[in-house]
Computed example of a mutant assay.
Amino acid sequence: MPPAPLPAAPTGSAFFARLAGTVTAWSGSTLAFSLALGTVLVWAVTGPLFQYSETWQLVINTGTTIITFLMVFLIQRAQNKDSLVLHLKLNELIAAHKGASNRLINAQDFTEEEINLLHGYFCLLAEKARQDHDLGRTHSVEEAEENHQEKKRAHR
């Protein structure tokens, strides 16, 4: 049975997503940096013309504050999307790999306590692999424990 189609995003949301992605990509460009630097240089050079007045200072403070305020939300939106896409790709790899533990699918939704518990298990797994001098052999805590016990029995 084919997977169910994904729901379409509302038109306004899709527009904002495209806008956020475009602005975020552009804001990291050399042109954007050059424009920002040029603006600051023009502002600095005009200081003597305006006698370094409070209004002159207020112009740059207000402009940078507004731009920063808006960019925080646009960049956060783009980061949220990138993070979600990365999680989906990792979930696909975990689900598709026969030896991988499905318990890690959607690990981003775990509580901090659950994450710390799993971190402890993976530290144990890494320690067992280190003791076995084979970092790539096991795929899960259960498999690591089973392999470790088998090796102990074989060495007796």
Rank of each mutant, 00 (worst) to 15 (best):
M1L: 11
P3Q: 09
P7R: 02
A8G: 02
P10S: 06
P10V: 04
T11L: 11
G12P: 00
F15V: 15
R18L: 07
L19R: 02
T22N: 09
V23M: 05
V23R: 03
A25H: 14
S29F: 00
L31D: 02
L31E: 08
L31N: 06
A32K: 12
F33W: 09
L35K: 06
G38W: 03
G38Q: 14
L41T: 11
V42A: 10
V42C: 10
T46N: 08
P48Y: 10
P48W: 06
F50Y: 15
F50W: 06
Q51Y: 04
Y52A: 07
Y52E: 06
S53H: 04
S53W: 04
E54H: 07
E54I: 11
T55G: 08
T55Y: 11
W56A: 07
W56R: 07
Q57A: 13
Q57N: 14
L58S: 15
L58M: 13
V59L: 08
I60V: 15
I60W: 06
G63F: 10
T65G: 14
L70F: 15
L70S: 11
L70A: 14
L70I: 14
M71K: 07
V72P: 00
F73L: 10
L74M: 08
I75Y: 05
D82T: 13
S83M: 09
L84A: 12
V85E: 10
L90R: 05
N91F: 01
N91W: 00
E92V: 01
A95S: 10
A95P: 02
A96M: 01
H97P: 01
G99E: 15
S101L: 03
L104M: 05
L104E: 00
N106I: 00
Q108Y: 08
D109H: 01
D109K: 05
F110K: 04
E112Q: 14
E112D: 11
E112M: 14
E112L: 15
E113A: 09
E114K: 14
N116T: 07
N116A: 13
L117I: 07
L117A: 13
L118M: 12
H119M: 08
H119K: 14
H119Q: 12
G120N: 12
F122L: 14
F122K: 08
C123M: 12
C123Y: 04
C123D: 13
L124H: 07
L124D: 08
L125N: 01
E127C: 06
R130F: 11
Q131I: 02
D132E: 06
H139D: 02
S140P: 01
V141E: 00
N147G: 09
N147R: 12
K151V: 08
K152R: 15
R156G: 07
